[in-house]
Write a protein that binds this DNA or RNA. Sequence first.
DNA 1: GAGCACTGC
Length: 722
Amino acid sequence: MSQFWKPGTERPQGRVVDDEEGGVLFLSGSHHSSSSSRYGYASIDKQRQRLPVFKYRTAILYLVETRATTIIVGETGSGKTTQIPQYLKEAGWAAGGRLIACTQPRRLAVQAVASRVAEEMGVKLGEEVGYTIRFEDVTKPDVTVLKFLTDGVLLREMMDDPLLTKYRNCELDVKVPGRAFEHELEKLRHVIMLDEAHERSISTDILLGLLKKIQRRRPELRLIISSATIEAKSMSDFFRMRKKRREPENEEHGLQVEPVILSVEGRGFNVQINYSEEPVQDYVQAAVSTVLLIHEREPAGDVLVFLTGQDDIDASVQLLNDEVQTTGKHSSGLIVLPLYSGLSRAEQELVFSQAPRGKRKVIISTNIAETSLTLEGIVYVVDSGFSKQRFYNPISDIENLVVAPISRASARQRAGRAGRVRPGKCYRLYTEEYFLNHMSNEGIPEIQRSSMVSCVIQLKALGIDNILGFDWPASPSTEAMIRALEILYSLRVLDDDAKLTSPTGFQVAEIPLDPMVSKMIIASSQLGCSEEIITIAAVLSVQSIWISGRGIQKESDEAKLRFAAAEGDHVTFLNVYKGFHQSGKSSQWCHKNYVNYHAMRKVLEVREQLKRIAKRIGLVLKSCESDMQVVRKAVTAGFFANACHLEEYSHNGMYKTLRGSQEVYIHPSSVLFRVNPKWVIYNSLVSTDRQYMRNVITIDPSCLLEAAPHFYQLQQSNHLLR
DNA sequence: GAGCACTGC
């Protein structure tokens, strides 16, 4: 297949930010493409001063002093993440026991940034500079002043302290002042920095809404929002808009509420964009021929290809390897590596190793390389223009993974991956016309593509009662909201007035899991099987505890049968956990039984956290030993809405959901596959050509009525008792 | 007899 390319006109790293309405705007100077190693060894201070953000130190501090909200647009390598928190500390924003908080969407980034900053400041991590992520609090009371954390953790912290008035490293009694003395106010002058806000995770969006709300009560709270170029304007609009009435500006303290955008250049290199001249029919095939073209015509440098999922990636790795084999010398020198989250740790690490001299590394990856992982040495990027995205249908209450076109923002992000070490090239497997006229500017925020049950619970726990009226950066659909309220009501987590019930609702909000799982845990406390149910909840919260992969299917299926329980997958998990525990948590035992050791370690961690929380909220930790009847009852108490009945005359194992009469099937990975018991409850649905139930347990229909009479009242006569 | 983009508490 021949490939025609048309050089594009887009500059992936353009940095002019529009600011019409009177906001201060700093434009960057000339674009430097320097690397720090050019100067050889330099002291940390010198290195810090060489970062692009250093030029803006005074400007940033001035803006944070005078503006409620500052939006920083910082390209890759600008140094904003590591430097700005230090500038704030140096300027006295952490004096008097106050904490400067800086959030990241991902745990790994939190750890990396915190340790880098601690190193630059010459302090031990966990002292002045600390971090908090799930399972790990590396901060020290009275000592830590710079705290890095995931946005999820900050959200959890706000449940105990909704106005963040206690955001300090030691106890201090401060009242929220209506009109307070200067020195009282001083204690409340906090800065919170939300980094990578453009990624628009659910937690970031909730935080943005909450912090905007808090600012009205606490004008002395300062926000720094870091964002990519394209999204900066909408972020600024969000903070500019006063929701109902126009609120008076806080002129008294010389503070302006209008947000301002400050743009800092990065250290990326220019990336030449090439578009396909014709629309591409088959992007796997097109990606393969483009890689071969690059290898044939372009100078040395590694290639990164963005495809959508495991299937596409494995197929193209195969095609490229075949090509290398058949054409021999011409195409040799290629090392082709797949990259997706489902790979084992060892396989993932291969992509970070350097290619031997004279060899070219080709990494074929999912979206994981767009945000989560940074690969060094990439000079060429091939962008299919697609990724797998999650969509939620509130009518059927089902989440689907769909291959969908990416946004222009994503396309720029992908292209930028080619310019980290030297000028690079990006090959887009779509036309320039398509890019300009058919791609959306920004992706759909996660909050508009997800179920809202967890989100509603969190907001309720934060004291936000009018959720439909909440000031979102992007509003979730009314249908999704109503569906969430309905589910939470049926779980008896919300009452008739949509308030959290006591104690169930408040307990569910404390548990960091899906409300149906939390409800199951609470029920298990009353039924006397919380030890078992907490283990099951922990296993359900990791991706999979089985080792899967090509060539070992038969063996791993057989291994699974050794643990299989007649009741279904949940009880099977208990058998695996028991065996793992009895082996002394041995990795050899896992290996022998085709159980994923890393997943089991995570199960242990989650289990410990859940036990701690259970104790705190007053649940009884107790084992039911071998009475699996109560285990099934507890599962039913949380998941009654997922009950299904086998169609009597079905020969292919078709079930129908009680709630919506949806056609569903037991997933082949379940121990109940082909067993087809009459009544089952599933944990989740995956939809491909059919709807498959994953993690299934048999139930007794009378338990359904017992667990949720309110829910099954109507169906009672015509379904359950037939 | 099928297949799971990626985070997070």
